[in-house]
């Protein structure tokens, strides 16, 4: 496949800092290779801006191989762009065509305030995780293999939940800016495994409580989160979270201890 170049019109959200009002700025991106990733395209635009002495576009990125969950961007109405099951760093410019206008917005949620341009503060997720998304036992040495038997289906399902990279695309995609897909995946990865049982009921309560405190919306089961999740986290996690939460609140004795 031969490499071709294209010219694009970018409509990018620019915002100096958390307190100032932002606006859309139109930037022409010329001579963009179809083999570039979306972030590499922005790198090229930023080099151009730097040469001109302008402020480069601020955006989040880290591993650039689709596993860290750092990159974001709401591209033409979809988190991580038009392709399903990818992060923005794994989105390539061949998914766009020459002369296309691309609108790039930051994640929009009260719980994810814009820090600058396209970068948002996702520490709300960290606080939810800190509220109970862990197993608080001293692990000691590495246990022997198979000393804790777990059925394969359970292990697989827990692993699928654990693939959540915490990028926040679920919040960005949801019309209610709900974080339930993220929170439910983090609850599920322990709820399905024996190591997570001891704190299962207090964890569900603590994490849901923190989620609400951060100001995320409620779930209306539109399934937009599932459709946009780059790692394919399923809606069944949310049902499991609901079940665990109501179970904990109505039928179990453990409550959240502050």
């Amino acid at each position: 496949m031969s490499e071709t170049t294209m010219n694009l019109t970018l409509k990018i959200w620019r915002q100096k800092n958390q307190n100032e009002k932002g606006r859309f700025v139109t930037i022409e991106a010329k001579g963009i290779s179809t083999d570039m990733s979306f972030l590499e395209m922005l790198d090229v635009v930023n080099e151009d801006l730097t040469r001109k002495g302008e402020d480069p576009i601020y955006f989040d990125h880290d591993c650039r191989e689709g596993i860290c969950g750092m990159c974001s961007l709401y591209i033409n109405g979809q988190p991580h762009g038009p392709k399903h099951g990818t992060t923005t760093c794994q989105l390539h410019m061949r998914s766009f065509h020459d002369g296309q206008t691309i609108v790039i917005e930051p994640w929009r949620a009260a719980a994810f305030p814009v820090l600058k341009d396209l970068a948002v503060d996702r520490t709300a997720f960290d606080r939810i995780q800190q509220a109970g998304g862990y197993v608080s036992v001293n692990t000691g040495g590495v246990p022997d293999a198979n000393c804790l038997p777990i059925p394969k289906v359970k292990a697989d399902e827990a692993f699928e939940s654990a693939t959540c990279i915490g990028c926040g695309a679920c919040v960005a995609a949801c019309k209610n800016a709900s974080a339930m897909l993220f929170v439910s995946a983090k609850i599920s990865q322990y709820a399905l495994l024996p190591q997570g049982q001891a704190e299962r009921w207090s964890r569900a309560q603590a994490m849901v409580e923190q989620m609400d405190a951060e100001g995320f919306g409620a779930c209306t089961v539109t399934k937009a989160c599932e459709a946009e999740c780059p790692v394919g986290i399923k809606l069944t996690n949310i049902a499991r979270m609901n079940r665990d939460y109501f179970n904990a609140k109505f039928f179990k004795e453990e409550t959240v201890h502050h």
Partner: peptide, 27 residues
């Protein structure tokens, strides 16, 4: 719940995904 959900996204998106990721009736 609608008021709560509206508060969770005070600044709306410029681009709307429409039916790309969710059915019309669910939205």
């Amino acid at each position: 719940l609608t008021l709560h959900n509206k508060k969770a996204r005070p600044i709306p998106y410029d681009q709307k995904p429409g039916n790309k990721n969710a059915a019309w009736n669910s939205r």
